[in-house]
Simulated scan of single mutants.
Amino acid sequence: MPRHDASELAIRLGREAEAVCRHYLSAGRRAGRYWLVGDVQNTPGRSMFVRLTGPESGKGAAGKWTDMATGEHGDLLDIIRQSLGLVDFRDLAEEARRFLSLPYPEPEKTRTPPGSTSSAASGSPEASRRLFAMAQPIHGTLAEIYLRGRVITRLSGTIALRYHPRCYYRPDEHSPTEIRPALVAAVTDLSGHQTGAHRTWLAPDGSGKAAVETPRRAMGDLLGHAVRFGTAAEVLAAGEGIETVLSPRQVLPRMPMLAALSAAHLAAILFPATLRRLYIIRDRDPAGDGARSNLVARAASFGIEAISLTPVEGDFNDDLRRHGADGLRAALKDQLHPEDVRRFME
């Protein structure tokens, strides 16, 4: 966005400063000429104050804010950006214009210059960390309703999963951005550092995935990393999809598991130095077969015992939904090492 467009939007937002605060910083309250709130993430408190009156620009302008606890400061565009976890300025401008009910500018006729980092920035590890930080725990949300609809009810130890009620979705680069609820998962490396995020956009009532062409998308640095449930030591189970992995976890709640998010990424996961036995949660499809073969070979080269866990149906979530936890437990018990049955299975 050209600088003058950003400045104009900030000025227009400043004219509606209190309305902006009531919408994006709803946990705060007005106190004289200021709006008081805990921080720019809308935490209750009084350490951040936003000027509700003042000149249109410059020192003391309406909409300028300061967080006394951290020293952060900015304008109302920054509040919108951080409250929604936005990175791309086009998304930020669309949200500001939507709030102000302004018309959209004519699209520029120029191409993105070669080497532009705009798309890379919007999908960067930093952007994924920001998105995850803006999301909330899944308890009592549409994300929990969605998972329970997949018969995934044991959700303790799933801190890698969060819920974002207003996650941006763009069908393609030529379409306007939409706002939809989403299940957000943190992708982390072996040390637990977040490198990416995965989004599953949800139906408005949480009854399933959103009715869009690509309801699942990942962002950030994914290769070798995964969505993790528990910390792996000597034993680890690894699969592709989040629901696929959470399904055997319903009857193996203490076994560390990870979701690599695709067959290609499953074949490339990095192994903890302490790992001695790897369970491969496979899907019954050609991609799953290829990932399993590659992962078995890689594990063997590290001296790691690899054991395939094979579903009766297409994947383990199908098994869980069709045969229940008891049926899934019985099927898995026959495939696990006896030592792990005693250690991990209820």
Rank of each mutant, 00 (worst) to 15 (best):
I281H: 02
T244S: 08
V245P: 05
A267Q: 07
M219P: 03
S207L: 10
A233P: 08
P272L: 09
A263Q: 06
L270E: 15
R228D: 04
E178M: 15
A260Y: 05
L261C: 02
A267V: 07
P253F: 12
R284L: 12
T195G: 01
A264I: 12
A259I: 00
I179V: 15
L261D: 03
R276L: 10
L202I: 06
G220T: 00
G220C: 03
V227S: 00
Q250V: 11
M257T: 12
P176Y: 11
R276E: 11
G241Y: 01
Q250M: 11
R284P: 07
A260T: 03
G206P: 11
T274C: 12
V187K: 00
A182M: 09
G239Y: 04
R276Q: 14
G192T: 06
R199E: 02
Q250S: 12
A273W: 11
A264M: 13
G208A: 15
T177D: 13
V212N: 10
A259F: 02
L183I: 04
F271R: 05
M255H: 10
Q194V: 02
A185P: 05
R282A: 15
R282Y: 13
V235G: 09
A232K: 07
H193E: 13
A203Y: 04
L275Y: 05
L278T: 09
S262W: 10
F229D: 05
L223Y: 13
G220Y: 00
L246T: 10
A197I: 01
T244H: 03
I281Y: 05
T244C: 08
G192N: 05
R199F: 00
L222F: 03
V184S: 00
F229E: 01
Q250I: 13
R180G: 06
P215E: 12
Q250F: 10
S262R: 03
H198D: 04
R216V: 11
P176C: 13
S175G: 12
D283V: 08
F271W: 07
A211K: 11
G220P: 00
P256Y: 06
L266E: 00
R276H: 10
L278I: 06
A267G: 09
R249Q: 13
F229R: 08
P272W: 04
V235N: 09
I280N: 02
T188D: 06
G208F: 10
A197V: 02
T195P: 00
A267H: 04
A210F: 13
I242V: 14
R254P: 09
V245A: 04
R249W: 08
A232Q: 04
